[in-house]
Write a protein that binds this DNA or RNA. Structure first.
Ligand code: MN
Ligand code: MN
Ligand code: ZN
Ligand code: ZN
Lengths: 122, 122
DNA sequence: TAACAAATAGGAATCATTCCTGTTTATAAT
DNA sequence: ATTATAAACAGGAATGATTCCTATTTGTTA
């Protein structure tokens, strides 16, 4: 079995990596259409899932909508419940994963800290 | 304006408070039907949202499905990505909210730490 | 007991995401 | 370069959790 690099996947990865705005699949889809007019929603979702599984991007669960993050360095998030904006922040120490793994009997894959509240725009 | 206590809301709150299993709306709905056969899904969702807004229960965003937590004391969660189980754990200090609020310019409402991985059942 | 706003039941609508299928395309072997 | 083939795609249908709608019921106050 071999791995194929489609133009679509390359474009989707570039789009996610090119912003700090933690975009939704729909935002990414619309951005992609401007460059590749015939790209389909299904392709965007399939590739986002694949890139996430592959560890090339991160997923943020924002209620009913998923958001994607091109920054795969450990960091935390502020989530505004009024405008749904997501901001980066660093609260937890970088090595918390290993510390926690020593404490508990659970195969830790990812630790995510989300701070919900109201941002300065309101 | 006055507040009404329907039997439905009382039952739903009791059900959420009676378990440590972090149930979904559907699980709660089915449990409720056994006692109040004609209760509707809409009623379950409406009351869960209301109870959450009111601070009587907590909501956990688990991808596409919401889960509900009768324990409103600050605590953290282990989430198994294989069986979707949610376990309670205490990692963050109780007073982190205030510490963080002092550090950042953001009106902090809630801080949630979720540790994803694989639980002992696998 | 009467008046009325709050809440409900039941079902339709929404909407993000996944699934399906016939077609296209990137890669490896010839 | 040509060919074989599995990977990936486009387009659209299906899914499923949640919300919305409305006629009816019910809890509370006076
Ligand atoms: Mn981020
Ligand atoms: Mn809990
Ligand atoms: Zn905001
Ligand atoms: Zn598990």
């Amino acid at each position: 079995m071999y791995k194929r690099y489609s133009k679509q996947r390359t474009l989707i990865l570039e789009i996610v990596k090119s912003t700090h705005s933690h975009p939704s699949a729909d935002w990414i889809y619309n951005k992609a259409r401007k460059i590749m007019t015939k790209i389909s929603r299904g392709t965007v979702y399939r590739n986002l899932n694949q890139l996430a599984e592959n560890g090339e991007i991160n997923v943020i669960k924002d209620g009913d909508v998923m958001k994607y993050d091109g920054n795969i360095l450990r960091h935390d998030h502020l989530l505004c419940t009024k405008c749904d904006s997501v901001y980066d922040i660093n609260i937890l120490p970088k090595d918390l994963d290993k510390k926690v793994q020593r404490l508990i009997n659970f195969d830790v894959k990812q630790i995510s800290l989300t701070i919900e509240g109201i941002c300065q725009n309101h």
